[in-house]
Design a protein around this nucleic acid. Structure first.
Lengths: 151, 151
DNA sequence: ACGGAAATGTAGCCTATGCTATATTTCCAA
DNA sequence: TTGGAAATATAGCATAGGCTACATTTCCGT
């Protein structure tokens, strides 16, 4: 195949296969939402534990400085995922809470699957922190089916 | 637990558990090397196919513009992963080739595992593009054992 | 109730990673 | 062999996401 040819397009009505570029573009898109997912999930946790999520606690749990957390919260706010007033705690909007729920479910499922295939719990928790963001709906369904099918 | 307490440190000689911050910090570190891994793997592929990796081909396969690819190659060069001369192709150094081999092996293993637990091939390929970067050595070994144990 | 400690906010810096626009170089075909 | 097309390089812009240093506000104990 000459280097500037695209892969052949199927003419038989089936879906065209994803190209390399499609996959990388998908991965880049996910990378840019991964931070939001981490924050919403964490804010949900802190709110449940303490009734509110404070910048300092967010920063410590994420292992970043508080100005970094503060700046990220401004982005979350701009995206409509949280609300906050100056010098007060941060709270999830409906959209933020929905994201947090989905992320948490995905996280748990990924950890369960990793453990089910023999990954030690500690490593499963560690790796899941990155993996969870990249697991598609399709893959999630497959994980569920797999875990169900082996009680 | 008060909100500014750290988790209890084990006093019995066992390893302390990874904290949330440890896991997030780990994930951030991986995120910053993921791009290098994508590039070295791709450059290895292109070199095998065409005898060299050209900026234009790298850019097209990744789905970015060529100035973006060019800038990334400069960073790879600075890190000692590739060599290149102006207006010429890009080639992996030994370090780059080693990284490419490891990434490719990890990629294949992740795809195989996903398929083994029932993920459709197309989704497995798509999701692996992001997941592969976050799979630790420990998890990799577990995947191998799992796949071996079921032929 | 007030003063210091803790929390939060802000300014300013850096690098990475994307882009467009433009310059330069190389390659190939007539 | 030469001129236009293709490839590559570079300049400059933007945002994200880190940081330190410093300013401001809130909270709490005496």
């Amino acid at each position: 195949m000459s280097r500037d040819e695209l892969p052949p397009e199927p003419e038989d009505g089936t879906l065209p296969e994803a190209t390399d570029a499609d996959r990388f573009t998908n991965a880049r898109a996910i990378r840019s939402t991964a931070l939001f997912e981490d924050y919403t999930e964490l804010i949900a946790d802190l709110t449940e534990e303490f009734g509110e999520a404070r910048i300092t606690d967010i920063a410590r749990r994420l292992g970043v400085t508080h100005p970094t957390a503060n700046k990220a919260v401004l982005r979350l706010k701009r995206e409509g995922l949280v609300i906050s007033r100056p010098y007060r705690g941060v709270f999830l909007t409906e959209a933020g809470a929905t994201m947090a729920r989905e992320v948490k479910a995905r996280h748990r499922l990924v950890v369960r699957l990793l453990i089910a295939v023999g990954v030690p719990a500690e490593a499963a928790e560690m790796d899941a922190e990155g993996i969870e963001h990249y697991v598609s709906e399709t893959t999630l369904k497959a994980f569920e089916a797999y875990l169900d099918g082996r009680e």
